Simulated assay, not measured.
Amino acid sequence: MRRSARRAHEEATLLREVLDPFRQKFPTVAVTERVHRPPAARTLMSEATGARAIVVGSRGRGAISGLVLGSVSQAVLHRAASPVFVVPVLGSRRTATYGRGAGGLG
């Protein structure tokens, strides 16, 4: 298997492993899984066209950890037409936030 194909397979496997507990806990929530290459914000916005909501994670790696969202979360939060929910990674002390895109919740 070529290196890029092996990496894509590993990324897809990791994504499935991360999502499986949530699928079991929330079986009625439809989730589409896809692994894309950068630029992440542009890809998320493209894939989310027509979505009822967008959920993105934030690792809090900004200049002031915990106060500044990551660049991808920030871009999606400000440009999305759907409600955007930004959730911290496991183990983070920050609380989840949500934002308002054009026509989103606020």
Rank of each mutant, 00 (worst) to 15 (best):
T43F: 03
G60N: 05
R42K: 11
L77Y: 04
V56K: 00
L77P: 04
Q74D: 13
R34S: 08
R2H: 15
A63L: 12
Q24R: 13
R16N: 04
D20Y: 00
I54Q: 06
T95I: 00
V86F: 06
A102Y: 06
G91Y: 04
E10A: 00
R37M: 14
L15S: 03
A96T: 08
G91I: 00
L67V: 07
T28N: 14
H36W: 15
G62H: 02
A75F: 12
R52S: 15
R93N: 10
T43Y: 02
P88M: 04
T43N: 05
A40S: 10
P27S: 07
R100G: 03
S82D: 12
G57N: 04
A8M: 10
A40T: 03
L15K: 02
L69K: 00
K25L: 12
V68H: 02
Y98R: 08
R59W: 13
R61D: 14
R94W: 02
P38C: 01
T13F: 12
A63G: 09
T95W: 03
R2P: 15
R23A: 09
H78I: 05
R93P: 07
G91Q: 04
V35K: 07
T43R: 00
M1Q: 13
L105S: 13
D20M: 06
D20H: 07
G91D: 05
L14N: 01
Y98I: 01
Y98C: 05
R7I: 15
G104V: 01
M45P: 12
V84E: 03
E33A: 08
E11M: 11
R3K: 15
L90V: 10
D20G: 05
S73L: 10
S65W: 07
R100V: 10
V56T: 06
A51D: 05
V18D: 00
A12E: 01
V29H: 04
P21T: 05
Q74I: 12
G66D: 08
A40H: 00
M45D: 13
T43A: 08
L105D: 12
H78E: 09
L44V: 12
R61Q: 14
M1R: 15
A48R: 02
G57T: 06
D20K: 07
G57W: 03
T97F: 13
T95D: 08
R3N: 15
H9P: 01
G104S: 04
V18S: 01
F22N: 07
A81E: 15
A48G: 03
Q74E: 14
